[in-house]
Design a protein around this nucleic acid. Structure first.
Length: 213
DNA sequence: TGCGTGATATTCT
DNA sequence: GAATATCACGCAG
């Protein structure tokens, strides 16, 4: 195996059919690929958040809420839920669990691997490559993902999909769990550690707080 | 390094 | 009318 193996097609990641915590951990270290205009932009998934559905006060589907915006979160697992927020940002989620359950994983950060030039031109404000995809809205901007991708099937799409570059789930010892970002309103759910990061990866959306003794 | 703040569409009160 | 699964900028220390 040489370092120039990025053109070799890897198998698709297909194991979306599980609860969102399990899928969140499975997705860490897999490769998110955006193929557009004959170019490939891709990166390793380094940070995700699990959203648990109707019982989760931080989830868009809390209490079974169903609106035109979140409709695709009720699609079968493997589909994409893209939403627009703060009047200017897109965020992308992978639907998991069962159809109509409203369960998903938010992709928060990737480590860029291919198509760095395209990402840089898509994100002129990023001063360093660690700022290209280190945040949910940053990574959608870097990859050119918007509402036109809402409801897309990652298992069959040729333009956006996830490649399985490792068969085993990353060991728990290499994963740091923290509370989710920006969900302080969600009461007891605000404290629940459902954000999963590859420990000390430089492409995270935020540094992991040091544990104080 | 770490606040405070503006931009601004969708949803809920 | 208010809040939000955010980002980028300015200013303080």
């Amino acid at each position: 195996m040489t370092s120039d193996s990025s053109h070799v097609s890897a198998p698709r990641f297909v194991a979306f059919d599980a609860d969102s915590e399990t899928v969140a951990k499975r997705l860490l270290g897999q490769r998110l690929v955006r193929s557009h205009d004959g170019q490939r932009r891709s990166g390793l998934i380094v940070e995700v958040e699990a959203y648990l559905g109707a019982t989760d006060k931080a989830a868009h589907t809390y209490g079974g809420r169903r609106t035109p915006r979140n409709e695709s979160m009720y699609l079968p697992s493997g589909h994409l839920y893209v939403y627009f927020t703060y009047g200017m940002h897109h965020c992308m989620n992978v639907v998991c669990g069962q159809a109509d359950e409203g369960v998903a994983v938010l992709l928060r950060a990737i480590e860029p691997i291919e198509g760095l030039e395209s990402m840089r031109s898509a994100r002129p404000k990023a001063k360093r490559d660690t700022q290209l995809c280190s945040g949910p809205a940053r990574l959608t901007q870097a990859l050119g993902i918007d509402l036109s991708h809402d409801g897309l099937d990652l298992r069959t799409s040729d333009t956006l999909f996830i490649e399985q570059v490792r068969k085993r789930t990353i060991a728990d010892t290499k994963i740091t769990r923290t509370p989710r970002i920006g969900v302080g309103y969600a009461q007891e759910w605000a404290q629940t550690p459902l954000r999963f990061c590859l420990t000390n990866n430089p492409h995270l959306s935020r540094r992991i707080k040091r544990i104080t003794h």
